[in-house]
Amino acid sequence: MSDVSTFLELLLNGVSMGSVYALIALGFVVIFRATEVVNFAHASLLLAGGYVTASLHDDIGFWPALGVGIAAAAVVGAAVEFLVMRRYRGHDHSVLAIVTIGVDILLTTELTRRLGTDVLTLGDPWGDAVLTVGGVSIAHTRIAAFVAAALLITAFLLTFRYTSWGVAMRAAAESSETAALMGVRLGRVSLGAWAVAGGLAAVAALFLTVFPTPGLERATSLAALKAFPAAILGGLDSTTGALVGGLIVGVTESLATGYQSELAFMGRGLGDLAPYLVMTLILLLRPSGLFGTKELARV
């Protein structure tokens, strides 16, 4: 296998993984824009969706199970918003971020207790089939991940731009007070944001656990955490940023894992670390991320 085809393979895999991270990061950014809350419980929403899909697919088949999984994660997200976030009476958004940490501890503990040491498959139809074109081979699952993520992201951006829900969402992000005065129901907007984020996370859960990864396990939530650097290096309040950030994280991770032997002096397991190193570097140069709104105040 030539150097070029190795590189192409790693790049394609990276782009595919990156689009999955972008899905997660997008949900994260949507919540942030609608409510200004940084949602640390995002990884556990993903785990919840994946778990529901994994435990149902044997009985009702893959596609219905995936549908139920997406719906379940959306319901969990909406429930967190309705039962917890809405009850907070203060104004400090970093305290709300800590509340989401509490929610994350609860959900993750429950789900990892149910998972135990098991590795669950989600029963996807792609299996371990590989497509080879001109010496470059790529797994069917990776192609499916990219296509699904691209479709979902396009659909989301169109919705965001053209439907009244999208307009309400953008208005709330711009200035929540003005939006409320114009008749936008902020409660509904943030409920919707949490539900959408949960649904996107459940789709991402599918593609984080298919071939070549073994399946849904405890460590899946660690993989989901990589969406955080993706979201912040793109800029927390930018949907474009989430997409670009996701791709950067995916490609860096894939290349660092692929060329591990050349980078042996950096130690084993560099692929897991690389996204965070890139995030640190970018934040040093641009504290508000690549596409984030720059702060105008200088103090």
């Binding site: 958004h93 970093s94 971020a97 979201a231 130690g267 560099l270 640190t280 040093l284 504290p287």
Partner: peptide
């Protein structure tokens, strides 16, 4: 601190996630 001084609140929370992973990497490898 170049990062800790410039990022605010929850942004810093995400950025400091990097420290955990760097730490784990070093602990397992050195």
């Amino acid at each position: 601190s170049p990062i800790a001084g410039r990022l605010k609140g929850a942004y810093l929370g995400i950025a400091t996630l990097a420290l955990i992973f760097i730490g784990q990497h070093v602990l397992f490898n050195a």
